[in-house]
Amino acid sequence: MAEQPVPDYPGSDPIEAVAPVGARLDLPEAGEWKRVSPKYVMVEIVGTVIFLLIVCAAAGALWLLLDQVWAAWVGGLIALITLVSLAFEPRRVRSIGYQLRADDLLFRRGIMYQRFVSVPYGRMQLVDITRGPVARLLGLADLKFVTAAASSGVAIPGLAEADADALRDRLVELAESRRAGL
């Protein structure tokens, strides 16, 4: 470190006091989180396995056909990392949650890299519902809450289809009653 920081004002760290919670990011006052369907794990697993197969095929082709030995190593490494992350998939899906509060939609996801987003209902530009092939087989749908900001990124995956439709209608209704311009 280039500089040894020295507090130059009294009561050196006033903010230390407002952090009674642990190191983990959490909203202590938030209510019950609604979780996505556990079946969504299957969608993720199928996606990961397909990715794995493509990586293996590409690495194998490079190795066996073009005699590039490094490709085998790189492919193997990617495959190993993917397999390990596959083991965490159920936990990751369990971390996805959302709740409808009085004035805003609260969304969370991630375990290692946590992310919390709060969107006031009035900021809604549109709600998108998409169904991939695997999700459709399992009767699931993904809901995306789109605002004028590209970085909002509120996408709730793996909702039961009926739930997704109900949530969409509810969100539209809430947004309508709290409409704000751009």
Partner: peptide, 12 residues
Amino acid sequence: ARLQSVGINQGP
């Protein structure tokens, strides 16, 4: 009044 949403993140 123009803010769209707020997010907080944390990595390891």
